[in-house]
Amino acid sequence: MSSKAATRRSFLKQSIGSAAWALTAVRGLAAGSPSTVPEAGRSRVVIACDPRVRHAGASFDSAQVAKLLDRAIQASFNVDTPLEAWKRIVRPGEVVGLKVNCLGGRGNATHPELVEAITERLRQAGITEIVIWERQNSDLERARFKIVEHGQGLRCFGNDTLGFEDDLSTFGQAGSRICRTLTSVCDAVINLPVLKDHGIAGVTMALKSMFGAIHNPNKYHSNGGDPYVADVNMLAPIRQKLRLHICDGLNAQYEGGPSFMPQWMWPFNGLLVARDPVALDYVGWKIIEKKRAEAGMKPLGELKRQPTYIATAADREHRLGTCDPKRIERVEI
């Protein structure tokens, strides 16, 4: 498909399907020269919420989701227009991967409405090749994405389509094969995790979502994922290609994750945007703890589920970002 010639409708239709198009801080930005060193100073985490994103039922208003995304991105980069921000994230000609999180299925996966809005903005920023990807094709399908393995423009497939690199990438306790989608297809990756609880790791957002890029995530859940989550995010191909984290909090889950448990979902109606994944996870964790307290539930620490990997990701060996509240600029809009 020639993206220049494609209308927005046909662009989306190709990858997301017709009836069912029922379709998450980075290490440095500056398109083309992603830094692997956190920015000096404070890490900004934007929390953008708007109840208007939600229709009367459980569905979401795509236009309102797009508006919320625009506000969040603009605030994240402190620029005058969303497009200015996107042009700082990606550069024309790059193949951009959107790493969604679909484990929770239709109930608490990255929403297609959000992905639709991001693909549209990427197009406006001059991106013609976009790949929506996740662990497996079946994960994507359960979350209402349609598999499109071939062609140009917008593709959507799981790691089972291209497999994994033969060689191991290693750091600390992690030794993993990285999916070829990330290593060989994408020039840049935008991480789109979900705001939710995790029964072993405490919470799962930006950092833990990268388990979807490796061949052996099952090996890394011991000790609440610490230090494995941090170590996996240090693997060179992952570090070098992550540009931005947009955490989908349209629906959020404060207990029973990562599986979808409707009784513990709440309508957060928001997005968390950051370049620093550690700061984003720290802020998201506190949001979940607040909700747990409101629901009369024990803090994760008392349940031996405190997400200690977040602090590990910020330590001297990793330096993936900051979890020091004094160094996090929390912007609520």
């Binding site: 099952n218 090996k219 599986s259």
Partner: peptide, 25 residues
């Protein structure tokens, strides 16, 4: 409860959520 299971095959006793796998993969 809640569609979780506990594996009793090896000493890890993985508690596994729906759609997830144990340590063995």
């Amino acid at each position: 409860p809640y569609k979780k299971i506990k594996c009793k095959l090896c000493p890890r006793e993985c508690v596994i959520d729906d759609a997830e796998r144990g340590y063995c993969g």
